[in-house]
Design a protein around this nucleic acid. Structure first.
Lengths: 335, 335
DNA sequence: CTGAAAGCGCTTACAG
DNA sequence: CTGAAAGCGCTTACAG
């Protein structure tokens, strides 16, 4: 095992100053260094298998070329896909990403944020949770670049890249109405998360604009976590009574999975008796006999945009960019 | 926006040396510092909202408290789940993890490895790909702590945590035979990855030990990526001919997804006409009318074990630990 | 009980 | 064209 070489080692061997070695290896002061010396420095650097110590460089330059990504849970496919696209885009620009999962908990979130800041990340990409505004205020107050993804706070003037959830739900309901459905139910979340509430708003607005009655019992809400049972109950309720629904809008692929499992066991014919549209894709929904129609989020674009907005804001602390992206209706057999 | 406070700022304000501040804040030299001064230092540190700069600390201590995780693709649920468990375990021990996806490419792998090492990670957890031994040799030669997960190289004497893939396949086939299946086919990968070949070996050995004939056409191999079509062809072939298979062992949940999609459209009755056992779980396989029986990997344990082996080896560079964990047969309706 | 000093491995403004 | 020097923000062996 050879010891790691430093600039100093190279400098000594070549017989020049570390400054010169640094300049050459970083291609600074290009024309102003004699070809011969530069050549020799590169040669020795290569011989010694020199690699620059980024920690040392970071300390001096006050840039770590690292961005922190905080999501609710990296094992959730939505976030892991997003993370992958962010990783790729960041890598392209010479940045490395460190990832943390907050599980939607404020404490974990703050702890992650602090850890990342202590490590001097250059900026953060954040899928924030409910009641996390105050931590974001800290970032704002301290002038730390960040951009929100997926979730954002309407009252907070910050960078974000999100889906136009209102529009997406509106579009979905409209499609169902066009197809002649008259009794559209929705299973959504009981939450403070603005982006999820936008989906309910879109559902209601679409019905209202087409002058369909808005029945209270048609919009069911379930908890954000561990809601499998509640989802089954909600779907059961929507399908019961004297006027069962003939279409279902499901606010997430998680809800859709649970709902479809139940419907599978109920021998209700999809889409004949019941049309289904879900938010987000999921492999599971492909395997259902009537593959589920869904509102697709442009994950790759969202990730790239978020990354680039962040990098812009790291480089020159300028304007605030807010983007609401359009969802695409992917029509398959369930609706 | 307040400027970030450093040790020096605190020292100046309190009127002591930075050394003293450092000692107090790190709880070093406990008894040997006057309570009053210590108290005052903590007070001012809190007032100034002091946070230690980990980059500076790392430069001095030569420890970054960071581990690098290299997988094939973080958006693959197998790896994202593994990553989450690793993140949790690492966090518990005060480490942060940075993640990179190699896409099974040697170049990307090496680039990631170099990037992580330049950032002075304390160690690496690696799901290596084919032909990556030479890069691992580099780590060994340079005494850099690492542990392999999921995949390993039998000829390489390194830490690893993997599944006993041979045993898992053996167990699966045995179970099928016990249930009276006589014509068991397998769809596996055509690859150099040792752990995947172990699955084939287990399949063959189980048949042999029970003196079942080993028919060449019964073991189909498909490429590691983009193999959807090949999988469909393989399954079709196994189900055709004068003696179709009555049971199928599928070497991954990806293969299982494609296979089940096809079988779904073929109106073959599972498990009556065809029993199915897959490797690894997948939400998708739950939604099939006959939920798929599978060999479950103890992901959480694997992740924790890998993390702890790495941390041990970071702290005191000692022995090599190799673990082959047992898979659990999760019996559901498909077999 | 406390401090001066060296040093981790870089970068960069300055001087020549 | 090249180098001496300062400094990034810490830690720690040493001395008193």
């Amino acid at each position: 095992m050879k010891k790691k070489a430093s600039l100093k080692d190279i400098a000594q061997k070549v017989g020049v100053s570390t400054a010169l070695v640094s300049y050459v290896l970083n291609n600074k002061k290009e024309g102003r260094i004699s070809k011969a010396v530069a050549e020799r420095i590169r040669e020795v650097a290569h011989e010694m298998d020199y690699r620059t110590n980024q920690i040392a460089r970071s300390l001096k330059t006050r840039k770590t070329q690292t961005i922190g990504l905080i999501v609710a849970d990296i094992s959730n496919p939505f976030f892991s896909k997003l993370a992958r696209f962010i990783e790729d885009e960041a890598d392209k620009k010479g940045y490395t990403v460190i990832i943390g999962s907050s599980d939607e908990y404020q404490d974990k979130f703050r702890k992650l944020m602090d850890t990342f800041l202590d490590r001097q990340v250059d900026g953060l990409i954040i899928a924030a949770g409910a009641k996390m505004e105050k931590h974001l205020h800290y970032l704002i107050d301290n002038n730390i670049p960040f951009v929100l993804v997926d979730r954002y706070f309407p009252k907070l003037h910050t960078n974000y890249v999100a889906l136009d959830n209102f529009g997406a739900a509106y579009k979905a309901v409209n499609y169902l109405l066009e197809k002649g459905r008259k009794h559209i139910g929705m299973v959504a979340y009981d939450t403070e998360l603005h982006h999820l509430n936008e989906r309910k708003r879109g559902y209601l607005a679409a019905l209202k604009d087409k002058q369909f009655p808005i029945l209270k019992g048609r919009l069911k809400e379930v908890a954000l976590v561990n809601s499998e049972l509640a989802i089954e109950r909600a779907v059961t309720a929507l399908l019961a009574g004297k006027q069962p629904v003939d279409a279902l809008l499901l606010s997430s692929s998680y809800i859709a999975n649970s709902a479809v499992k139940l419907i599978n066991s109920l021998s209700i014919k999809v889409p004949d008796e019941l049309a289904i549209i879900s938010f987000d894709e999921s492999e599971a929904l492909d395997l259902f006999y009537a593959p589920i129609t869904y509102m697709k989020q442009p994950l790759c674009e969202m990730a790239q945009l978020a990354t680039n907005i962040l990098l812009d804001s790291i480089e020159k602390n300028n304007k605030v960019t807010q983007v609401n992206m359009e969802a695409e209706l992917i029509i398959r057999q369930s609706a």
